[in-house]
């Protein structure tokens, strides 16, 4: 009996090892490759260097793109939060007609092909005879990240009984006071988590921006995409590794410090 159990768990462990290798392998290869002294891929690991990270200083266009991505991510996450937090409150607190349909509508950007979203925004700008702009880029990113804010906030609110806010009402707090003094402080972790997660989702996104970039507003993924068209080398691996590390740090912060489960 015990032999069979250990046989079963050995099989389980072997399976998990293979799955983890398969899922994490590509990102690991990028990180390992970023320390390779070779000048282009494919190549064996020829030697260890930090040099490719230092190279970043010689590519101002990547630093500019990083700056644009940070701005876009911050604006999108902010707009998404300002609009998405009330949505989560409404969904968590109230029952209303067409609730299912309205929820599906608000969550729709999650399942719509992002390339179509980006293209549609381009068409709106064209119809308005506006050039592709920073604003259009930020707006479509905000549309896209809002559902993540709603989801993070909802996961916080479901644990919070509506009677807590009602108790405040019975004690004389009006709607604003209830929001500012009760709901907001209690759900602070969810709000921060939603903001960070929304930022990450905007930061790593490429297809949304593909048709909306201008020479002055090129996001980091677009810059990487363009570079990768011509060559694959340890430098681009270094850029990729930096984004991975930043994103991993952000998500660890959400899960372990804020203790908001985004993935469950």
């Amino acid at each position: 009996m015990s032999a069979r159990i250990s046989l079963g768990s050995a099989g389980a462990i072997a399976w998990l090892v293979l799955i983890y290798l398969f899922v994490l392998g590509p990102a690991a290869v990028v990180i390992i490759g970023s320390f390779n002294t070779a000048t282009s891929f494919p190549s064996d690991f020829e030697g260890f260097t930090f040099g490719w990270y230092a190279q970043l200083g010689e590519h101002p266009e990547f630093l500019d793109a990083l700056f644009v991505s940070i701005q876009i991510g911050a604006i999108a996450a902010f707009v998404g939060s300002v609009i998405g937090i009330p949505v989560a409150l409404a969904l968590a607190r109230y029952d209303f007609r067409f609730k299912g349909m309205i929820t599906a509508f608000i969550m729709a950007p999650l399942i719509l092909p992002q390339i179509v979203l980006g293209m549609a925004m381009l068409q709106l700008l064209t119809a308005l005879q506006l050039p592709a702009t920073f604003l259009g880029l930020a707006l479509i990113h905000a549309v896209f990240v809002m559902p993540y804010v709603v989801r993070a906030m909802l996961s916080c609110l479901t644990g919070l009984s509506p009677s807590v806010s009602e108790a405040a009402a019975s004690l004389g707090a009006n709607a604003w006071q209830r929001f500012l003094l009760i709901t907001l402080p209690i759900t602070r972790a969810g709000i921060m988590a939603g903001f960070i997660f929304a930022f990450i989702m905007s930061f790593i996104n490429l297809p949304l921006s593909l048709f909306l970039t201008t020479p002055t507003s090129t996001t980091l993924p677009i810059r990487m995409f363009a570079y990768m068209e011509s060559q694959i080398d340890p430098f681009i691996a270094a850029v990729g590794s930096l984004t991975v590390i930043a994103v991993i740090a952000g998500s660890f912060f959400i899960e372990k410090i804020l203790k908001v489960r985004l993935l469950a």
Partner: peptide
């Protein structure tokens, strides 16, 4: 509105401000 009634209430689940 509730916040103008000046009524004290306790809830089935207490609803303290955590």
């Amino acid at each position: 509105p509730a916040h103008k009634r000046n009524i004290g209430i306790t809830f089935q689940n207490y609803a303290l401000f955590p």
